Simulated assay, not measured.
Amino acid sequence: MDTRPPLSPEDAHALLDWYAAMGVDAAIEEEGQDRFAEVAARRAAAAPPPAPEPALRRPGPPAEALDGPERTAAAARAAASGAETLDELRAILERFDGCALKATASRTVFSDGTPGARLMLVGEAPGRDEDLSGLPFVGRSGQLLDRMLAAIGIDRASAYIANVIPWRPPGNRTPTPQELETCLPFIRRQIALADPDVLVTLGGPAAQSLFQTKEGILRLRGRWLDYDTGRRRIRALATLHPAYLLRQPGQKAFAWRDFKAVRRALDGG
């Protein structure tokens, strides 16, 4: 029997604030689910991945010489490289348990739009609305993104949209460097399989991860870069994240310049 005194209203409010900060901000289902037990069950049921062919092995330290984060990153690279289609990559992500974010997220947020579209947009990570729906960019920032695309004559169905991180960080916190490193092989493979003509990164973290740079987004945006998909080089452009534009509407003029440049690129300019 619990003999603890009931919480005071102040303590109850403080506890709710703490839950919200930790990402517990929505009642998903009537009954709670032990996500950690689900992960353990998937790991127990998953068959070990097949060993790569000798001709495809890259030189490097033996597996036993790698520490935990390096082993996880190596496992992510091996898993991602095994996908030959976007459907296979989605299935691999659903089975992959090397990123702790998966245990706290409601679902994997893989993509929206049309695979094979000429334009692909990549953000950082899902938020609360995306975690609930399973689709990227569906909240307020997603609604702004839809209007930005419409301004250059493109709708969501005419583009392909994804995130570097496919699982929502608790409380929408910034992903850690290790989480980014673990998820990076999957988004790289997703870009290669989607094979767009133009790649647009939304926000600094996505640009820094995919272009391997430490430059801030205000210096990086608006510059055309070459992105190597492994099959070919495509044109790539970094621009401001719609969530940033909601906080700083005075910066929309820069994003408008970038989106007009994207329209010209798609038109062959």
Results as ranks from 00 to 15, higher is better:
A75K: 13
G82A: 15
A117L: 07
F137Y: 08
P59D: 14
W167N: 05
P126T: 04
P61D: 10
S106L: 10
L86V: 06
P126L: 03
N172E: 05
A157F: 00
L89C: 10
F110S: 07
R118F: 01
V109F: 02
V122S: 11
R118M: 10
D131C: 07
T72K: 14
A47N: 11
E84Y: 02
I92Q: 06
A103P: 10
L144G: 04
A65S: 13
G82T: 13
N172D: 09
I92L: 12
R147Y: 02
I161M: 07
K102E: 04
D97W: 01
P115E: 05
A63K: 14
G123T: 08
R58A: 15
D146V: 06
D129S: 11
T114H: 12
S141P: 12
R95K: 14
A162C: 04
E88C: 13
A79F: 02
A63T: 12
R57E: 09
P166E: 02
G98E: 05
S158I: 04
R58V: 15
V138D: 01
K102S: 08
R128I: 08
G68V: 11
P166N: 02
P115S: 12
A150M: 09
P136A: 08
D67R: 15
A74R: 14
G127H: 09
V109S: 09
L145V: 05
R128M: 06
P54Y: 01
A159H: 01
G68Y: 00
A151K: 11
P170C: 07
L56V: 15
C99P: 07
I161E: 05
G98Y: 02
G134I: 06
L86E: 06
F110R: 09
A157I: 04
F96M: 15
P54C: 10
E84I: 11
R95W: 01
S106W: 00
F96S: 15
I161V: 15
A79K: 07
R90P: 06
G82F: 02
